[in-house]
Nucleic acid binder design. Structure first.
Lengths: 158, 158
DNA sequence: ATTAACACGTGAAAC
DNA sequence: TGTTTCACGTGTTAA
């Protein structure tokens, strides 16, 4: 059911949602300007075209990011922009919970072997996460969703 | 530098990007219809208003999902829609890599204690992930980005 | 003053 | 059929 990965080439005129690659030369169009007063073109029409092109680029870039997000998330159900972000949220939450649980297992296994061996020293060659299980307590490795209490509102990022 | 967490309350008229909370009653407007031929209103204007309202709802819903995604991701740098998805992608990738590494540690610790104890049986009460470290090999728990080979075909995430 | 980001309305296409 | 999703162009606003 719902074999979405077949082709899904919809696209009415130029591009649309799901190819994002064949639209290589659609962007340098002339833009009809729909107004025949673009002879001198010092103020209105030129600026308007700049805005149009900028908007096209912005839209395209955001869409590409959305495709990338979709390609990252494993269990994609639907292709709607809304569902893509939705599934990504769900996946992140599951991943965070999984990660927390696994760390609990790690500390448990660590306490199991008390001080007999030290096979953990070979995983310290990564700097982005400092993944030595000694310091990898519950939420120190990445600040896992620790700022969920006041997310939007005033938007204090840090 | 770049203290974006100050306020960032922009919003020209009704809402805009970053409050998403005070816009409770802006949606039930009358919609001017911009055409004074809406007396009978059987075909054109009524359908047009339906479309307008649907579009507003769609836009609002997608934005809410975007806010939710932002609230999940811990290290938010910028507030643009584009950057939100971008940071989410980066975060997911790091999370996946972290998770894989931690599982490697787990199997290593497991092989360390060979067959002395079995403290892992108390984490089996979850069904969504089946988080028993015996079966939690590299990419069995969630199909971690295993479908990146043919997601959109062209669309290389870069 | 130029740029960048956004919401909006609208027509068209997909479902 | 009708509903839903989309890209587009436009005006507006903040940096």
């Amino acid at each position: 059911m719902e074999n979405i990965s077949d082709e899904y080439t919809h696209c009415w005129e130029t591009n649309t949602f799901f190819q994002a690659e064949d639209l290589q030369g659609y962007l340098d169009e002339e833009i009809p300007t729909h107004d025949s007063s673009s002879q001198d073109g010092t103020q209105s029409s030129l600026m308007a075209n700049r805005n149009i092109v900028s908007e096209r680029n912005r839209r395209k870039k955001l869409n590409e990011r959305l495709y990338a997000l979709r390609s990252i998330v494993p269990n994609i159900t639907k292709m709607h922009k809304e569902s893509i972000v939705e599934d990504a949220i769900d996946y992140i939450q599951k991943l965070q919970e999984e990660e927390r649980k696994i760390q609990a297992e790690i500390s448990d296994l660590e306490s199991a072997e008390t001080s007999s061996k030290s096979t953990i020293s070979e995983f310290d060659h990564d700097e982005t996460f400092s993944s030595s299980p000694k310091r990898l307590t519950n939420e120190s490795f990445y600040d896992s969703r620790g700022s969920r209490s006041s997310p939007i509102e005033v938007l204090e990022v840090d």
